[in-house]
């Protein structure tokens, strides 16, 4: 018998009520039950960070959290970053710095950076590099990612 749970998730501001099996990870719930396929799975054991989302504003591996654990929580995914079709500053910086090639890791890095810059608005490049080390990218060698996040930190600082 499947252990089923009725849960409520607010994803990027939209509330969803659904029944999930207890063992379904938040990543699978988001991707396959709710269609937020921007969150990716690259390892399912916490190393790659492709599945990074924000749970109540704080970054988390969606592969290491069960959907049912997030019941009642507010989830932010990559789909919520752009508004009205306008890319966010972070998304634009990723493109300008060529911080993505295949793009599979990109949503994870964007969400990681989003959470990080919200908590630490004044990072040094070294600190950015250290936080970028939380996730894996196999294509870029990370340089563009570090530059993009540093650019955004700088420009947000200047516009404050």
């Amino acid at each position: 018998m499947k252990d089923l749970q009725l849960i409520t998730l607010t994803v990027n501001g939209t509330e969803h009520e659904l029944v999930v099996e207890s063992r379904r990870t938040l990543a699978d719930v988001l991707r396959h039950d709710l269609g937020y396929t921007g969150t990716h799975l690259g390892c399912e054991h916490g190393i790659c960070g492709a599945c990074t989302v924000l749970i109540d504003g704080s970054p988390a591996r969606a592969c290491l959290t069960f959907g049912v654990q997030a019941d009642g929580c507010s989830i932010s995914t990559v789909e919520g970053l752009a508004s009205d079709g306008e890319l966010s500053d972070l998304q634009r910086a990723f493109s300008e710095r060529h911080a993505l090639q295949c793009g599979f890791c990109t949503p994870g890095f964007l969400m990681l950076a989003e959470a990080y810059l919200a908590e630490y608005p004044n990072p040094s490049t070294e600190e950015v590099r250290e936080v970028v080390a939380a996730n894996l990218c196999r294509c870029t060698g990370y340089q563009g990612i570090v530059e993009a996040i540093s650019d955004v930190a700088r420009s947000r600082r200047e516009s404050r």
């Binding site: 937020y36 921007g38 990559v78 970053l81 752009a82 998304q91 493109s95 990109t106």
Partner: peptide
């Protein structure tokens, strides 16, 4: 880039 950056890949 646009689709990959917005989760529409």
């Amino acid at each position: 880039d646009p689709r990959l950056l917005t989760g529409r890949g």
